[in-house]
Amino acid sequence: MCLGVPGKVLAIDGMVATVDFFGVKKELRLDIVDEPVTVGDYVLNHVGYAIRRIPPEEVQETLALFEQILDITGAREDLMAMDVQGEIAAGRAKA
């Protein structure tokens, strides 16, 4: 329902950030972003507003999650997998 595109913050001037979308740049407003943003951060753009600062470590976390989902499904009967599931649950509670 809402197009969101990630980009990298190049500069900040008050409530306005210049963001690189890997081909074009655009100024985004920072009025409603969830956390303070600094140069070099990734943010998600929706209708000209940054709606989320994307912490790089959480990008890695999502990728790791895919691996875990695959592992669990591939080795469902494996008891080891149950441990991993427990870890995901723990990770989720933390999130």
Binding site: F21, G23, V24
Partner: peptide
């Protein structure tokens, strides 16, 4: 597709 066009296309849907 040039990067500029792809990026603008992604942004504008």
């Amino acid at each position: 597709v040039r990067d500029e066009v792809r990026a603008a296309g992604d942004m504008l849907g």
